[in-house]
Design a binder for these strands. Structure first.
Length: 426
RNA sequence: GGUGAGGUGGCUGAGUGGUCGAAAGCAGCGCUUUGCUAAAGCGCCGUACCUCAAAAGGGUACCGAGGGUUCGAAUCCCUCCCUCACCGCCA
């Protein structure tokens, strides 16, 4: 949520920044300013009347204690009371309109974000490692999974429909090994605190991290819209301290959690969704940071580095992409994607997004009223960041494709062997 | 799920219709004094919003949430939420 004062003071700047993402939300700025003006006018008038009522009510109290008549004053206050009821309703309605508009306006891209309207304007930041030499006959993860009996997609479909995964045997164990490996890496070497949060959260949490109100149709909900299945651990982790005022010396707070993620992914189908690459339920290890305003951008860089480390230790080739203004998600001010090499996908391989690391600045914090005490004693909104560290199905797919052997077996990276218990799957 | 108790400022805790945004204590901040690592005295010390060019100042709202009664509600009534205790059930 943007600061209404910023919009009021620099409407042109906000309009221009919002427009740089594409979309039509910039048009809402004018509407918002109108509502804001009406709201403040109503509020000022309301407060004037309330003040008057307070004054007269005290006068009544005074007169009664002296045994004087109060009928005339009571009639007057009753009249003011009627006007107050009316103005309260109008004021509350403007207030709600304003909040609803604010919830629908996306965050402003950071000034460093490259301008562009689609992914073609994204910027390659760096690459790490090299593509494996597999002799041009790389199998994709679906074929490999079937051959090694570590994926049972047919039966997953029987249980839950398309878009669900059933890891089998060594596949299930590999999934678990990867989760443990990543959690250990981030807690032991990167200083994150491991959490195991609820997988169902309240509506307010979903609003806090910007999944709602705009993207409700992408979410799974329960109980008349009261509880939602988390689409990512970002939601419970970032909301942990919602409505709190944190001590700056406790910042940054760094959390890591494994959770399943539930997404409707309505309308997605086709080559992008083959196998386990885009599904309704998947596992993910997520990194979240809560920081001060001053440090959030350096924290973003180290967050990306923390996520990259997973691929480095596993020895998987990847690249880091900086998203352009038009490709940013709703709440993000700046985002880096990490894409791992998948030699079996498409014809001759492609890159798969396994992490998206974003700085939301105070956009989420404002929605969830998450603050810290500034050095000047004033309460300030925190900055929030998150990134996958990493998403499992695509990592799983990339791993078995990159390390497949000519005989169809998969040789596991050294670091993973102790977690998996063996050095290969065959 | 049942019964009972309760939700007041960073914490503890008064306050059952009228200068209560709220006593007091603790914590915190500032000054003074003594001196020593602690104590005493005095002062300040919630949040959000509106107003104001800004600061100062002024105002409004907030005592779990939402409604109601009233000229006036932390205080009375209703609904809901949460916490605690005991009972029941249970992986």
């Amino acid at each position: 949520m943007l600061d209404i004062r910023l919009i009021r003071e620099k409407p042109d700047f906000v309009r221009e920044r919002v427009a740089s993402r594409g979309g039509d939300e910039a048009a809402k700025i004018d509407e918002l300013l109108k509502v804001d003006a009406k709201r403040r006018k109503a509020e000022t008038e309301l407060q004037r009347l309330q003040s008057e009522r307070n004054r007269l009510s005290k006068e009544i109290g005074g007169r009664k204690s002296r045994g004087e008549a109060t009928k005339d004053l009571e009639a007057e206050v009753r009249k003011i009371g009627d006007q107050i009821v009316d103005l309260e309703q109008r004021s509350a309605s403007f207030d709600e309109q304003q909040r609803n508009l604010l919830l629908e306006i996306p965050n402003l891209p950071h000034e460093s974000v490259p301008f562009g309207k689609d992914p073609s304007a994204n910027k390659l930041v760096r690459e790490w490692g090299t593509k494996p030499k597999l002799g041009g006959k790389a199998l994709d993860h679906v074929a490999l999974g079937e051959k090694l009996k570590i994926l049972d997609l047919e039966r997953a479909t029987k249980l839950s429909g398309s878009g669900f995964i059933c890891f089998a045997g060594a596949g299930a164990k590999l999934e678990r090994a990867l989760i443990n490996f990543m959690l250990d890496l981030h807690t032991r070497e990167h200083g994150y605190t491991e959490m195991s949060p609820p997988f169902l959260v309240r509506r307010d949490c979903m609003i806090g991290t910007t999944q709602l109100p705009k993207f409700e149709s992408d979410m799974y909900g329960l109980e008349n819209g009261e509880l939602f299945l988390v689409p990512t651990a970002e939601v419970p982790l970032t909301n942990l301290h919602r409505e709190e005022i944190l001590t700056p010396t406790d910042l940054p707070k760094k959390f890591v959690a494994y959770t399943p993620c539930f997404r409707r992914e309505a309308g997605s189908a086709g080559r992008e969704t083959r196998g386990i690459l885009r599904v309704h339920q998947f596992d993910k290890v997520e990194l979240v940071k809560i920081t001060t305003a001053e440090t959030s951008y350096e924290e973003l860089e180290s967050l990306v580095a923390d996520a990259e480390k997973v691929l480095q230790v596993l020895g998987l080739h990847y690249r880091v992409i900086e998203l352009c203004t038009g490709d940013l998600t709703f709440g993000s001010a700046k985002t880096y994607d990490i894409e791992v090499w998948s030699p079996g996908s498409r014809d001759g391989g492609t890159y798969l997004e396994v992490s998206s690391c974003s700085n939301f600045e105070d956009f989420q914090a404002r929605r969830m009223n998450l603050r810290y005490k500034g050095a000047d004693g004033k309460n300030k909104f925190c900055h929030t960041l998150n990134g996958s560290g990493l998403a499992l199905p695509r990592l799983f797919a990339a791993l078995i494709e990159n390390f497949q052997q000519p005989d169809g077996s998969v040789r596991l990276p050294e670091k993973l062997q102790s977690y998996f218990g063996r050095n290969e799957i065959r």
